[in-house]
Amino acid sequence: MNSKIVLRNIVLAGGVALSSTAWAATPSGEMLGATCAACHGTNGSSVGILPSLASTPASYFVDSMKGFKSGTRKATVMDRVAKGYSDEEIQLMGDFFEAQKVVPMKQKFESVKASQGKKLHDKYCEKCHEDGGRKPDEGGVLAGQSMIYLTFSMADFLSGDREMDKKMKRKVDELLEESDKAGIDALIHFYGSQQ
């Protein structure tokens, strides 16, 4: 810990009023995160057509926010939102959401497609999105996400509007060779079926 941070923490811990408001001007992760709930759900667990943020590893969260902020990741609204936060605030929110337990979304799915999807998942995706996509990993949590949101995510990956991880792309290409776009649809039903 460098001395500047130590100094700041002492001041915080003692609650000593300082004329400089540098530290005071940073809201807590809880405060910042609470302002996103109207779109992303209470404590980051969504019940609507928007992604859950709860349980997302802070590293993936921070990457996503920085991508939105710089414009490298396609967005309808998040580019405008993300630009409102400093790197420090983004990290605080990342830590906050990582610590929340995600509640999978209740949604309708087709069980035939879901079981086809499970097979495809095990073959092509499980390596990185472990435990059927339930385990928080470098792509967030796939299981229990809004299916409509996942449809948009996959469409952006396939159209090239959103950059895909190189190794993921290789697997997705293999998948498309085996089953074309119906396979993607089946995978989405599989993720949506986990509730």
């Binding site: 709930a37 109207a38 779109c39 992303h40 759900g41 209470t42 969504s46 019940v47 609507g48 057509i49 928007l50 309808t76 609204v77 809004s146 409509i148 949101y149």
Partner: peptide, 11 residues
């Protein structure tokens, strides 16, 4: 997303 917002804010 507007409908998603509605579901989430009311919840």
């Amino acid at each position: 997303y507007a409908h998603g917002w509605y579901a989430n804010i009311t919840n």
